[in-house]
């Protein structure tokens, strides 16, 4: 399973993060805007081809794993229990396209590079910092939650019956939440002492290059998006 950045080479790696993000946006909009069944099918074929050409076909096995439960339940609900096989097929293609496009973005985009791209584009520093910080806080707190869970279970926490479960939830949830709140004071002092609120825009340390090819690609993707939406509303 590839769920995040993995180093590699190829034009998708060299592309500006916003270009790849625009690709995801284009996929999101066009799978819904273009007429079914041909539209979503075409987008899926296109995005899978792009994964091969861009040298990131390694995302396809993961994409299949993520898409499989969708297909399963779509078939059960709409084909076996219902009678809308076309709907199942369309939704399946839409979801699969989105999954592949998003995995491509995740695998080629180092979060630090995205943050630098946001700073270089002079987007609010707070937004870039919150994203970077949240991405790094989640694994830390997840590990801590798992540690608290294991410790309490070892100490013989009972998890039977509704009351027991709610009690257990408090016994496990409270230390996690209070522990996190305890960090707030020290962390905010550290951030304040390191100049996060000077009113100046931070300097991006490794701004990704934004080539004319990038700009052209984004322009084409925007045209594609607008055209797809126009097709939707004009036909």
């Amino acid at each position: 399973m590839i769920l995040g950045y993995e180093s590699g080479s190829g034009f998708l790696y060299r592309a500006h993060p916003f270009t790849v993000l625009t690709l995801v946006l284009a996929t999101l909009v066009t799978v819904f805007a273009l007429p079914a069944l041909v539209g979503p099918l075409g987008v899926l074929v296109g995005i899978v081809l792009l994964a091969f050409i861009g040298g990131v076909s390694k995302v396809l096995p993961t994409a299949s794993v993520l898409a499989a439960p969708f297909w399963f339940f779509l078939v059960v609900i709409h084909v076996i229990l219902g009678d809308a096989p076309t709907r199942a097929l369309v939704v399946g293609l839409q979801v699969s396209s989105m999954i592949v496009a998003f995995l491509i973005f995740l695998v080629v985009t180092h979060p630090g590079r995205l943050v630098d791209a946001m700073l270089a584009r002079r987007l609010p520093a707070g937004a870039a910092y919150l994203l970077a910080s949240a991405l790094q806080t989640v694994p830390r707190l997840r590990a801590r939650a798992a540690a608290i869970r294991d410790a309490q279970l070892v100490r013989g926490l009972r998890v039977q019956g509704v009351g027991g479960r709610v009690q257990g939830l408090l016994a496990l949830g409270m230390p996690l939440v209070l522990g996190a709140l305890h960090e707030v004071d020290e962390r905010s002092l550290a951030l304040a002492s390191r100049g996060v609120q000077t009113g100046l825009h931070p300097t991006p340390l490794h701004p990704p290059s934004d080539s004319s090819l990038d700009r052209l690609a984004r322009l084409l993707l925007y045209v594609f998006i607008v055209a797809a939406v126009a097709v939707r509303f004009l036909t």
């Binding site: 002079r122 609010p124 520093a125 707070g126 910092y129 919150l130 910080s133 949240a134 790094q136 806080t137 989640v138 830390r140 707190l141 997840r142 801590r144 939650a145 798992a146 608290i148 869970r149 939830l169 496990l172 949830g173 996690l176 939440v177 996190a180 709140l181 960090e183 707030v184 962390r187 905010s188 002092l189 550290a190 951030l191 304040a192 996060v196 609120q197 009113g199 100046l200 825009h201």
Partner: peptide
Amino acid sequence: MQNNRTSLTPRLLALIPLAVGINLAMGKI
């Protein structure tokens, strides 16, 4: 180089990612 859009205080910059972490870590519990 003034940028007044950064209205988040250091305290919120510290608190919000931790709150996000809580949202995503509860699943483990």
